[in-house]
Structures are given as C-alpha cells and as structure tokens.
Design a protein around this nucleic acid. Structure first.
Lengths: 214, 214
DNA sequence: CGCCTTGTTATGCAAGTGTATAAATACTGG
DNA sequence: CCAGTATTTATACACTTGCATAACAAGGCG
C-alpha cells in the first residue's frame, strides 16, 4: 500500500560519483550529440536522479567542461602511454607514438563523435574553448618534443624553424589520418593508416624510424 | 493609440526566402553552435517571425539539413574553383589545390565552426551523416584524381596501391593543416600553412610541384 | 476599386530544459 | 543502538523549445 515508495540508493564516494556522472555524460554526448546530454538523460544513465548533478557540479556547463577535459586527457594519455613501454631510442619512440595515435582505441568513432561535438561549441563557449586549447597544445607539444629528440639524435643542426615546420606537418598528418580513420574506418585495413602515417613521417623527416629486419 | 500595431512586412519570392532562412541558420550555428539555432533566433536574424519557418520547411530538422547541404556544396565549390583559373600542368594544379585549401576563405573560423557543429551530429543523425559522407568523399576523390595526374606525368609506373597511399597521406595533411589553421590561425603566418602544405606534399611525392624562379 | 489568395504575423500550447529547495534516507562516529 | 550529517531523492518553478492554429494584410486580378 506504499503509495510511492521512495527510491533506494547507496552513498558512493565523491570521486566515484563524479567519475560516473562524467562517464554518463560522455555516453550521452557520443550517442546523441550535445543536445542529447540533458541533465535528466545523464542522471538516468548514471543511475541517479537529476538533482544530484548539481550537488557535484555548480552547473551543467561545468559538468560538460569536466567531461571534455576527460576526453582530451584520455586521448593524449593513451598516445603517451605508448611511449612508456618502448625503448628509449628517439626514432622508435616517435614511430610508436604515431602508430598508437592511428589505431584503436585512439582511432574510434565514439571518440571522434565526442571530439566533434565538443569542438563545435569550443568556438562560442569560452570555457570549452580553453579546455580544448589546453588539450590540443598538449598533444602538439608532445609531437614537437619527440621530433626534437629525433632531429637532435640525427645530428643535423636542426634550427628552430626547421623543427617547427616538421612538427606542424607531422601533427597535421596525424590529425588528418586520425579523422579519416574515425570517420571511415571501414575503408582502411587494420594497420593501413598507421602504416601510411609512420612511413609518411619517415619521408617528411628523411629518416628511417624503424630498422628493417632485413 | 494603436495598442499593438501589427508588424509591416513584404512578400518575398519563395526561393529568396528559403535562401535567407538558410543563411540566417548558418549564422546562428556558426555563432552559437547547433544549440543556438532555435527557430526564434533564426527567424529574428532573417527578419521574419518564427512561424514563417514552418511555412517553408516541414520542420526545423529539414531546415538544418538544407543548411548543411549548402555548406558542403559551398566548400567543395571553393576548392574546385581554384583549379579552373590555373594552368593545366598537373603539378601546378595540385599545388594550387593544396594552397587554396590552406588559405582563406577556405581556412576560416566560421567555416570550421559550421563543419564541426554539423559533423558532431552526423554520427547520430542519418540524414546529416549521408550528406557529410558525400561531401567528404567528393573532396577525397578530387585529391586522388589530382595525385593520379601528377604521378602519371612523372612517368613512374604508379601502381594503384602507390596512388592510394599517396592520396590518403596528402588528403590527411590537407585536412590536418586546415584544422590547425581554422582553430589557431593566429599561431601561424599568413602563408605559413600553405607553404608547409605544398612543400610537404612535394616531399611525400618526391617531386617539385612548382618551378623555382632561380 | 474590391475581392481573394496566400505569404506572414501573432498567439497559444504541451513538452522539455536547467535550476532551486525541501524532505528523506544511508552511512558514520560515538 | 542512536543521533548527526550530508548524500540523495523528490517536487516545483520559471523559462525555452518546436509546433499548431487563427487572425491579418500584401499584392495580383477581375
């Protein structure tokens, strides 16, 4: 006869709840774009009620921002983690970074959907714009550092201008291939994009990044 | 003492009104993302009242779709038009295409904002997805055709696989540089990106695309 | 001029939005 | 085992959204 039994719930740790909410937000955005990320949809997915969101975030905007930061951080982290389990020879490191950026899980339709959705509003929303810029420059700097190592090792007196040009081009080719893979992954072989990526970088630098097991 | 004078208006031609509404929609999307493209905001910008939209489009969704098609068409048209006013030497044509894709008005924050906003929903909206795919493949095929001409002229027995790899890489570098330019145009010199683009393509192909005025 | 078509405005509505607030319950320390 | 706290639910509210409909007037035709 309980007319409207109040919902049972568990108290989760603060960090856990925040993370769950962010994850739910990402799911919603990936599936239906930013328009699909309503507080109610997010809460439903996170298994809580809408009001709880405002208990952990000052407003929905802040949740979106945190979610975006998570996406960017996760992607660069993925690419960087490819560096840690590899020999410290600069060329190998660069090759590993490029390859890791061009195969799953970095190349992934969901990730792209998230990226595109957020970046679409990064132009008009100052907070999202700042989050984007930070993440983007992080990736860009990583590329530049790796290229610098390679050029230094190659001995050539690599002027700053030369380094800059190479970094811009290599960064561009990674981005471009990443987009191609995410948007039309079915048009490429499993390792085709990473192969094109690494060998293109080799050509651009005029160096071999991986020894041939000749 | 007219309590609430009814607004004066003019009857415009059907095609003119449709185009005005589409243009207003693009302005709204570019400025505030898809979220900013409400029927009222669009109507305000178009200088009409909201109800009129439904007189020309079955629903808001149809208006958005028409607007997206307009964007895609306009961009490919811009890139192709760079080919028509140039000599027919294949290398020059490829160079012109690459360069045109990497300077304004193709490189433009507004265009990028539109592209990103729409593509963010191209994943979940079937109609927008199809429209995008068509436009994207159109660009991609254009690149491949140009590269094919260049390779053919260079004489080398360019196998299909070789052509494919080159097209993928060159397309990627154009896309990547385009994004870099749109997102952070202020970080690059006026012609820096197009310079990097053309010379990178030259390196990738192992050919000079432009004669030096030595 | 006066009517008639239809492009256009004005108004209204139900659904959905983010947010504010109060009530309730799960856990913690005693 | 009991009180206190703060996480969580529930409800309400003001506002916006897309859409429907009715009133209106602009321009063409007799």
């Amino acid at each position: 006869m309980a007319v409207a039994a109040r919902r049972k719930f568990r108290r989760e740790g603060e960090e856990r709840r925040r993370q769950d909410l962010i994850e739910a937000t990402l799911d919603c955005v990936a599936e239906n774009g930013l328009a699909g990320a309503t507080v109610r949809a997010i809460a439903l997915r996170a298994g809580v009620t809408a009001g709880l969101i405002r208990h952990y975030f000052p407003g929905k905007e802040d949740l979106l921002q945190a979610a975006y930061a998570t996406v960017m951080g996760r992607m660069t982290e993925l690419a960087k983690s490819a560096l840690e389990n590899v020999e410290r020879a600069p060329r190998r490191r660069l090759a590993a970074f490029v390859e890791a950026s061009l195969v799953p899980p970095v190349v992934d339709a969901r990730s792209f959907s998230l990226w595109a959705s957020f970046i679409g509003r990064a132009g008009s929303d100052a907070a999202l714009g700042a989050a984007h810029r930070a993440g983007y420059l992080g990736f860009r700097d990583e590329v530049e550092a790796l290229v610098a190592e390679v050029l230094a090792e190659a001995g050539g007196r690599a002027g700053g201008a030369e380094l800059r040009r190479h970094a811009i081009a290599i960064n561009a080719i990674i981005d471009g291939l990443w987009i191609e893979g995410c948007l039309a992954g079915d048009m490429f072989g499993a390792s085709e994009l990473s192969e094109v990526g690494v060998s293109s970088v080799e050509t651009l630098l005029g160096l071999k990044l991986r020894e041939k097991a000749a």
